[in-house]
């Protein structure tokens, strides 16, 4: 798998532990449905401490923090506020996480779904994202992720072996290609080999994927997570 290449019209990189990816799911799925095609959904497991420092909370209180300045903390809090605002308008709850999760198992499940039941991707994302952001899922537990797959109507037999074996190898090989390909965050979209970071580009991507009719749109977040216009 090459980071910028696909037979699908659009590659979508996401990470289950990203609140920005969470609020991008609804409008991205809306675009996929409108276009009547299958996007190439892929995992991009963020190494958050490498660019935002690390922290752990207990009962909402920060108990440890490393490498984060006050300015970084303010930026993170502001970004969460904005993501929460849009999540609420989409009908979701978004609770700040208590720690930086290892989301690799839940992200390898994205590969599992794409390789077996890509048409069930929406169901998997809906089974894992909202409960995780309500702090109801331990996504580091493989049985929890397997249960999400089953609830999405996707066979999970063999998933544990996949996430430890082939799936982990594919995930790690992809991760090694990300920076050289210009990919650094989620959600990221790849159209004709070009990277677009953030759901604010969905209006522009929609315009490109529907024949570039009329004036090209500027960046914009749909207030209610609907189809990018």
């Amino acid at each position: 798998m090459k980071a910028l290449e696909s037979t699908a019209p659009l590659i979508v990189y996401i990470d289950i532990k990203s609140p920005y990816a969470f609020v991008s799911i609804k409008p991205t799925l809306a675009l996929e449905k409108t276009l009547g095609c299958q996007f190439d959904w892929r995992p991009l497991t963020l190494d958050i401490p490498s660019y935002l420092g690390s922290a752990e909370k207990r009962d909402g209180v920060v108990v440890s923090s490393e490498g984060r300045s006050q300015r970084t903390w303010r930026s993170i809090r502001q970004s969460y506020r904005e993501a929460r605002r849009y999540a609420e308008r989409q009908g979701h709850m978004l609770k700040g996480t208590e720690k930086i999760w290892d989301s690799s198992i839940a992200n390898i499940a994205i590969l599992w779904v794409m390789q077996r039941r890509p048409e069930r991707m929406k169901a998997y994302l809906e089974a894992v994202y909202p409960p995780f952001w309500q702090r109801l899922l331990d996504i580091e537990d493989v049985s929890v992720v397997a249960d999400c797959l089953e609830r999405a109507g996707i066979e999970s037999a063999g998933f544990d072996a996949f996430q430890q074996g082939d799936g982990r190898v594919q995930h790690d090989q992809l991760a090694g290609q990300l920076h050289p390909a210009g990919l650094f965050g989620v959600p990221s979209y790849v159209l004709d080999g070009e990277v677009f970071f953030g759901r604010e580009h969905l209006p522009y991507l929609h315009w490109c994927l529907t024949g570039k009719q009329g004036q090209a749109p500027d960046v914009a977040y749909d207030p209610d997570g609907g189809l990018p216009c």
Binding site: S50, G67, F184
Partner: peptide, 23 residues
């Protein structure tokens, strides 16, 4: 944009900052 003062992987930190700025 500020980069973390202490990173578990300084090379990755630098790379991330450079790629993000180019983007």
């Amino acid at each position: 944009r500020e980069l973390p003062e202490h990173s578990p992987d300084p090379e990755l930190t630098t790379s991330h900052g450079r790629i993000r700025e180019a983007y």
